[in-house]
Amino acid sequence: MTPPDSGEIFVDGIRHESNAAKGPQISIVYQDQALFPHMTVWQNIEYGLHGRVKAKPERSARVRALARELQIEQLLGRKPGTLSGGESQRVALARALAVRPKILMLDEPLSSLDIRARAGIRSILRELNRSGITMIHVTHDYEEAISLASRIAVMERGTIVQSGNPREIFMCPKSEFVARFTGIKNFYEGSLVRTKHGAATTGTFLTGPLTMSVAVDARPGNGFIAIRSEDVTLSLAKPESSARNIFEGTIVDIIPTGNGVEIAIDTGIDIVARVTGQSCSEMNLECGKKVWVQFKATAARFIPAASPP
């Protein structure tokens, strides 16, 4: 559509033509679906087939098969304006798939949908992916990326700053930007002051009023600490444990999320712990309550600052 400023795109070794009906097809599905509003669902799905499939019966067969697969058979006669977000996205997928693309490009396909519709489309995408179609999926939602991708590339200002499989990205974010993208709640700026050498490398990280022990092999200097909220545990009394980092604080916020409850504790800095709804109610957690937070030094990940502040 937009001709490249430079370079060429090859799909399976065949050059992709940006403005022709020939060559390998790359279909795009937009966040807002962009269904043709003056056509019915059927006409939308059939649109790309004109010129590719001459015989009308075959076109109809393809439309019906896709409609069955995406469970939109009952919508075929409707106009896009009457569809819900999830239904529209199914139709948009059907329209894009009708032309049998080699690659399916998805531009935030789930972000305009409610949670239920999201789950439905997500499972459809997973099935499509299993059926062998390559998908390039653009998203701001790291859960979406984890649940769908086999490889992830994180882009910052137009360049890829890190790529790899989801584990690599989320367990080892290479920069503050990537760590923020992954949704890590506990992310602090400070400086690493001392590194002890031993069986495990342990450093001391100063951030605000707190001193943390972190497992690092980096040189001392300014940087960031990332701690996943799942790795932070709470207790009502001072715990006896192997965890190197134990702090006392006051609960300042309780945020229910899709999978558990996030508790923000003011220990001088805010630390977020994720607990299950059950333990939250069993421990009678409420705002203002004094609790102890703990996490292991290995759970705190140090990210050196890109440039010295």
Binding site: M1, N19, A21, Q25, I26, S27, I28, Y30, D32, A34, F36, P37, Y47, G48, H50, G51, R52, R95, A96, V99
Partner: peptide, 16 residues
């Protein structure tokens, strides 16, 4: 313009 882009992406000629 998005509608036109989608149509082109689906293989429709500019005139179509």
């Amino acid at each position: 313009q998005r509608y036109e882009n989608v149509a082109r992406n689906l293989g429709a000629s500019p005139i179509r």
